[in-house]
Every structure is written in C-alpha cells, then in structure tokens.
C-alpha cells in the first residue's frame, strides 16, 4: 500500500477546483453553476486541511471553519436570489438572463 502524501491531497483538490471551474463555465443552469462554485470552495477546504496536517499547525483548519460559515451564508443568500428570479421569469437558465445589453 502506498502512503498518502500531501501531493495526493493536492491533486484531488486541484481536480475538484478544475471540475468546479468547468461547471461554472459550461453549465447553463444557475443552480448547477452555484453548486459548482461550492465545489471550488470545498477544493480549497480539502487543500487547507491537508496543508494544515503537513505544515504541523492548525491555522488551516481554523480557516476551513470560516470558509464553511461564509459559504453557508452565501448559499442562503444565493438560493434566495435564484428562487426570486425563478418566480419572476419561470427560468433559471443563465443564457436567458440577458435583458440588459448595450
């Protein structure tokens, strides 16, 4: 069995971040885009905890608590805005959100 090193965690974290970024760029449903954004934040959480373990101090883990809290606040506000948008437009497709143009 190979030992799990910092690099393994970082590879998973970078993969998660890239998946999230790809989701934000490619998906058209605002809810899925929002979910992908949360994935990007969780990629940071994983990397922070791994760094914390391998740096030998707890700063990173404390940071993760703050990120989780802020992400929760962001989700609460974000979902409320998306629900309000759905009520008004009956759609959450981001390419239909285009009433403001030059």
């Amino acid at each position: 069995m190979i030992p799990v090193t910092l690099e393994h965690y970082l590879i998973v974290s970078v993969l998660m971040f890239s998946l999230g970024l790809a989701g934000v760029m490619l998906r058209r449903n605002a809810l899925v885009v929002f979910m992908s954004l949360e994935l990007m934040l969780n990629a940071s959480n994983l990397a922070l905890v791994a760094f914390s373990r391998f740096n030998g101090n707890l700063h990173g883990q404390i940071f993760v608590f703050f990120i989780i809290t802020v992400a929760a606040a962001e989700v609460a506000v974000g979902l409320a805005i998306i629900v309000a948008l759905f009520r008004r437009r009956q759609t959450v497709q981001v390419d239909e959100i285009n009433s403001m143009r030059l």
Binding site: V24, L37, I81, I97, M100
Partner: peptide, 14 residues
C-alpha cells in the same frame, strides 16, 4: 435588479 443580483452573485462567488 434580479438579473443584476444573479450576475453579481455568480461572478462574486467565483
């Protein structure tokens, strides 16, 4: 206003 909110939300969160 809602559309502006969604755009600000997504790009801000990014």
């Amino acid at each position: 206003s809602l559309e502006a909110g969604v755009k600000y939300l997504i790009l801000g969160a990014l």
